[in-house]
Amino acid sequence: MKLKTTVTNEQSVIEQLSQYRQKKARIQVLSNYSVGAGITVSRLNEDDQLQELHRKLRGLPSYLYLSKREQELETVAHIYLSRYPAGIKAQKRAVPAHAPDPEDTQLLQELRRKIQKVIAARGYDVREGIDEIIERLTELQDLQAEVGQIDTVLQALESYRPEYARIIQRHLIDEVAWEEVAKEMSLSKSVFYRWRKKAIEEYEKLAIC
């Protein structure tokens, strides 16, 4: 049972590391995705514009940016917006698309359109709607967190076992054949694979939070 668990953990680490370059590439694509008006998803992520929208709805007097009808929407919406979280995922959940009452559902959907209207008023031409933009922001942030975690663990491993960090970087992330990596490090096949196993074990220990 212990052997099976060890093998499973090792496979999980290898799979995570082998996806590193693909995730970096996806981050690059997402970062350059345009939402209109010359604004990219990475710009939205850096400026945290969606959090600013919630702050605006929460902090400014309603009459400054809401019509009488929209003030009515705000009043009803506060029933469902009992908190204003900062995280992108939580922000998406903060304005539900549906409610138990059909009239409330209509009001909430109008509010979502209002948030989209505010984004446009701030100079963002929302091309595909707020939901799709939030999905891309969420994916970007999740991938950045995953890649950042790998980078952090590798840096920590480099600080005390640089040879292990090099094997992980060259063989598991860069996908260089073991023969070439072993040659670069002047290792025999048996030593290379012994170090490779230990490198994965050390990586796994450091990655556990």
Rank of each mutant, 00 (worst) to 15 (best):
K24Y: 02
Y65H: 15
T40D: 05
T6C: 09
V7K: 14
Q49Y: 09
L66S: 10
V35Y: 07
V35S: 04
I14L: 15
R21K: 13
S18W: 04
P61Y: 02
E70L: 09
E52I: 00
N45W: 04
S34L: 03
P61T: 06
K4N: 14
L3R: 10
K23F: 01
Q16R: 15
S67Y: 09
V29K: 06
V35T: 08
N32A: 10
A37P: 02
G36S: 01
L53F: 07
L73A: 08
P61R: 05
R55L: 05
K68I: 11
K23C: 07
Q51C: 08
R58D: 12
Y65K: 12
L60F: 11
Q28Y: 04
L64V: 06
R21W: 03
L17G: 06
T8G: 11
L30G: 01
Q28A: 10
K23P: 00
K4T: 14
L50Q: 02
Q49P: 01
E52W: 00
Q22T: 09
T6W: 13
T5H: 12
K24M: 12
G38E: 10
T8K: 15
Q11R: 11
R26W: 03
A37S: 14
T8I: 13
Y33H: 07
Q71S: 11
Y65M: 15
V29T: 13
N45D: 11
S62H: 13
V35D: 04
S34Y: 00
S18V: 07
Q49N: 04
L57M: 08
L53K: 08
V7S: 05
S42Q: 06
G36K: 02
L60D: 13
T40G: 05
Q19D: 14
L53E: 08
Q71V: 12
E15Q: 15
D47A: 03
G38I: 03
K2E: 13
R69K: 12
N9Y: 12
K68Y: 07
K56D: 12
R69P: 00
L3V: 05
L44V: 02
Q16S: 14
I27F: 02
E72A: 14
Q51E: 11
R69N: 07
R55G: 00
K56S: 06
S67L: 04
L53Q: 08
K56L: 15
L3K: 09
L73Q: 08
S67C: 03
L64S: 10
E15M: 14
S12Q: 15
D47I: 04
S31L: 00
K23A: 06
L64N: 10
P61F: 04
